[in-house]
Design a protein around this nucleic acid. Sequence first.
DNA 1: AAAACGTACTTAGCATACTAAGTAATGTGA
DNA 2: TCACATTACTTAGTATGCTAAGTACGTTTT
Lengths: 145, 145
Amino acid sequence: MNARPHLFHLLLHSADLLEAELTRRLKPLGIGPRQAQVIDGLGRMGEVSQARLARAFNVTQASMSTMTTRLIAGGHIARRPDPEDTRGNLLSLTDKGRGLLSQIDAVWRDIDRFAADALGADRFEALAHEAGALRDALGGKRPGD
Amino acid sequence: MNARPHLFHLLLHSADLLEAELTRRLKPLGIGPRQAQVIDGLGRMGEVSQARLARAFNVTQASMSTMTTRLIAGGHIARRPDPEDTRGNLLSLTDKGRGLLSQIDAVWRDIDRFAADALGADRFEALAHEAGALRDALGGKRPGD
DNA sequence: AAAACGTACTTAGCATACTAAGTAATGTGA
DNA sequence: TCACATTACTTAGTATGCTAAGTACGTTTT
């Protein structure tokens, strides 16, 4: 039964599977996949406000608030009051967070290679290309602004 | 900066955006996207055990347990003891759950059309095709068994 | 300068997923 | 038939995301 599943089911399901794989591979580093993305982003963006980080990752400020709370608790990032704007803070990596950058990058490369191996490089390239187009069409921004 | 984001970022991000859109569209029905998938699956599978449902959707039994708890609380599905196996239950749609089937299906069609409009039918078709291939390569099963 | 509006952040409650751990019942093999 | 492995399910704890609601501060407008 179920000869032609709806198209978005395939997208959600394949993304779930890939995220699960990512979670497994990041386990030894003690962080989740989204935390890894934020650490990586902060590594490239330098010291930024939480609001800007939320925009860069296209999540709500509420979500980024809990995320940064977790990252601070884990000792990966630090917060200092923004001298220019008393409402906000500036976030940056701690030494511990910075120490994870190269390992995170290795996982990034591994997971891409893993998926490319599973699917074939051409097909995975095509998948990424179309996924990027969908993201842009739906209005998502990308980290790095 | 960030000239070439890693490929899986695009996949996760586009899936997030599409799921968010789906969540919005299902809000009036009072259910989340995964609940809708389970109701839909149950509509096609008939009366099945929770374990079988979990396998069909490629989630853990623990996840399906909380999911069915939610659906029962919402009055969408019902549970009766399996006469063949005292350990398990048999799950099936209630009238209320069954009443949602056509609306869920309409949302399914709408969201596919929405994405196809945003991206172009050919490209969305290609995206779905490659996503399906990745899912299969990563070992995911599909609802309906 | 006071009122209004907008922005930064937090907290609470809900939807989902996972792992780990525990209970119950089935099935199997000695 | 007794012991062990397997299977069905639940519960607790953690990771994430969202919306709604509230606080505090900055900016604009009268």
